Amino acid sequence: MTSIAEKYRHVCQQIEQAATQAHRSPDEVLLLAVSKTRSSAEVLALHQLGQRDFGENYLQEALDKIDALNDQAIVWHFIGPIQSNKTRPIAERFAWVHSVDREKIARRLSEQRPADAAPLNICLQVNISEEESKSGCLPSELPALIDAVKALPGIRLRGLMAIPAATDDPAEQRAALHAMQQLFQAAKTQVPDLDTLSMGMSGDMEEAVAQGATIVRIGTALFGPRNYANN
Rank of each mutant, 00 (worst) to 15 (best):
Q125C: 02
P225V: 03
R24F: 05
T37P: 12
C123A: 09
L46M: 12
Y8C: 15
K134S: 01
V149W: 04
S198K: 12
A45S: 11
V209R: 06
E207M: 14
P170E: 08
R113G: 09
H77F: 05
F94L: 01
E42S: 15
E132V: 02
I128L: 04
R52H: 13
K104A: 10
R113V: 11
G219Y: 00
I146G: 00
A208V: 11
S202F: 07
S110L: 03
A187W: 14
I215S: 00
C137W: 07
D193L: 09
R88K: 15
A91M: 01
A73K: 15
E141W: 11
K7P: 06
A151E: 13
M161I: 14
Q182W: 13
T214S: 13
I146F: 02
A148E: 01
I215A: 02
E131K: 00
P119N: 07
L157I: 02
S135L: 12
E172S: 14
A115K: 13
K65Q: 04
M205A: 11
G200A: 08
F54K: 06
A221Q: 12
C123G: 04
Q21C: 11
N127P: 07
T189C: 07
R24W: 00
H98R: 01
E141N: 11
E130C: 11
P164I: 10
S3V: 08
L194Q: 05
S39Q: 12
A73G: 03
Q13M: 14
E16T: 14
L46F: 03
A151T: 15
A187E: 12
T196D: 11
D195C: 05
Q51M: 01
R217S: 03
Q190A: 07
A144F: 03
L31E: 06
L63V: 05
D71F: 02
E56P: 07
A210V: 01
E103C: 11
L222Y: 08
A62R: 13
H23M: 06
R102E: 06
H10I: 07
K86L: 07
H98G: 00
H23E: 08
A144W: 10
A117W: 10
S3T: 14
Q60W: 04
D64P: 04
E92I: 01
R107F: 01
F223D: 07
A73H: 15
D169H: 10
L194V: 04
A221S: 11
I122D: 01
D116H: 13
D27M: 09
A95M: 08
L30G: 00
N121V: 01
G159F: 06
V209F: 06
L30Y: 04
C137H: 05
Q185R: 14
S3C: 04
R226I: 09
I146C: 00
A45M: 12
E130Y: 05
R107Y: 03
L109E: 02
P143V: 01
A162K: 06
I15C: 04
A33S: 03
F184E: 10
R174W: 13
R102A: 11
P164S: 09
R107S: 01
N121I: 01
S198R: 09
I105T: 14
R24D: 05
N70A: 11
A68K: 13
R156G: 03
L109Y: 02
M161K: 13
F78N: 05
A213D: 00
R9W: 12
Q51V: 03
I155L: 05
L44D: 10
G55C: 00
R102C: 09
E42H: 12
Q182F: 08
L63T: 03
G203N: 15
E172V: 11
S140K: 15
A213T: 00
C137D: 07
Q48A: 02
